Amino acid sequence: MIPPAWQECLRPDDDERVGYLVPAGEVFIPVTLIGTPLGEAQGRAAAAALLHERGLMTLNGRWWCLLPEMLLGTETDPRQPQLSWEWRSVLIVEASPEECRVRLEMPAEEERTSTVTLPVPVGELLRARQP
């Protein structure tokens, strides 16, 4: 669940939520819809501009999630990782203030309909792709 102190950042032309502004004293940290920092703490206008420009785009593409070798169904709880799990590439399929759903980027045939639900903010449960 998004902390109450986080302020929604809406795109001005259509009011689409593009992220959050997290107060850090007199500056703000721009944070994506899933709670990952998008940049350094900065003035409100600069942080909002960064979210308008890259907030949604940042969620597109490969992320990494610690998951079992075979992911079947929707019951896997990534908050309870097992020693045998490894970092697997995933894509974000849905993000809300409460949760984020991901699916494997390259699933085996039997994994194609499997998804994993993560709490938002995702914290260390997801790692951003490397540039």
Rank of each mutant, 00 (worst) to 15 (best):
M1I: 01
M1Y: 01
Q7W: 00
P12E: 10
D15P: 00
E16P: 01
Y20K: 05
P23H: 10
A24L: 14
V27F: 07
P30I: 08
P30T: 09
P30G: 09
V31N: 01
V31A: 06
L33C: 04
P37R: 07
L38C: 10
G39I: 08
R44W: 14
R44Y: 14
A47T: 05
A47I: 11
A48Q: 14
A49K: 13
L50V: 05
L51H: 10
L51Q: 03
L51D: 05
L51S: 05
H52S: 01
H52R: 11
E53W: 04
M57A: 15
M57H: 14
T58N: 09
G61Y: 09
R62Y: 06
P68L: 15
E69Y: 04
M70A: 14
L71H: 06
T76H: 11
R79G: 02
Q80S: 12
Q80I: 13
P81T: 13
L83P: 15
W87A: 12
L91S: 03
I92L: 11
A95I: 01
S96M: 03
P97L: 09
E99C: 12
C100I: 02
C100W: 03
V102N: 06
V102H: 05
R103W: 00
E105R: 07
M106C: 01
E110Y: 13
R112L: 06
R112Q: 13
V120T: 08
V122N: 02
R127P: 00
A128G: 11
A128Q: 13
A128R: 15
R129L: 09
Q130G: 13
